[in-house]
Simulated assay, not measured.
Amino acid sequence: MKVKQISVFLENKSGRLANVTEILGRNNINIRALSIADTSDFGILRLIVNKPDEAYACLKKAGFTVSATEVIAVEVQDHPGGLAAVLKILDARGINIEYLYAFLEKSSDAALVVFRVEQIDEAIKVLGENAINVLKGEDVYKL
């Protein structure tokens, strides 16, 4: 139920993001979802890719500062209030969301959202108890 996310620390200068995507492309690694958070000096690129271990290794070899983090990919009903319903379930159990971002593909008619939460196992459990589909990593990598 957990998905491996790759995070890359990038200096905020021209060409760094292009360099990352070029390296991934050369290694036949497909980006499934991404998010960039930046400041004036640096950014953090968060990626879900089809081959996370290979992505980690090739970016590390290229000299990037890289880390791997476990996140969850959650199906959210694709209508007004759909995300709010899922967030309310987590909030009721005291599960804090550190960040989230949307996925590029859908696994069904529902929207797919990536969550980084403090209590990942508890989040997976409570979402399942509330009939919210949390996708397996191998299913996400195939999208």
Rank of each mutant, 00 (worst) to 15 (best):
E118T: 01
S35W: 03
L127V: 07
V86G: 12
A84T: 10
L104T: 10
S40T: 15
L34K: 09
N133E: 07
E129F: 06
G81M: 08
A102W: 02
K13H: 09
A84M: 02
I97M: 11
K142D: 11
A92H: 02
F9V: 10
R93C: 03
N130A: 04
V86P: 15
N12K: 03
V113L: 08
Y99V: 05
I120Q: 14
I95Q: 09
A57H: 11
I48N: 01
L104E: 14
K125I: 04
V74S: 10
K13T: 14
A55V: 05
I120P: 10
Y56M: 09
K88T: 14
A110N: 15
S14R: 13
A85T: 08
N12L: 07
T39G: 09
I97D: 11
R93E: 15
N19D: 14
E138V: 01
A73Y: 13
G43E: 01
Y56N: 02
L34F: 15
V126D: 11
H79V: 09
A62H: 03
L59G: 12
A55E: 03
V126P: 05
A68D: 06
S107G: 12
I132A: 03
V126G: 11
G81Q: 11
T65G: 09
G81C: 07
K142N: 13
G137Q: 07
Y99C: 06
Q119C: 05
N30Y: 00
E122H: 13
K4C: 00
G94N: 09
V66H: 06
G63C: 00
L100N: 14
E75T: 13
F42E: 04
I44P: 00
G94E: 07
A33G: 13
I6F: 06
D78A: 03
K106A: 07
D38L: 10
E122C: 06
K2L: 09
N96C: 04
R32I: 12
F9C: 08
L100Y: 14
E129M: 05
V140M: 02
R93Q: 15
I36M: 11
N19M: 01
I44W: 02
I89G: 10
D121H: 13
I31T: 06
T65K: 14
A37Y: 13
G94Q: 05
I120K: 13
S35F: 06
F42T: 13
V3R: 06
V86W: 15
S35D: 02
Q77M: 08
L135F: 03
T69R: 07
R116W: 01
I6G: 08
K2R: 14
F64I: 09
V66E: 05
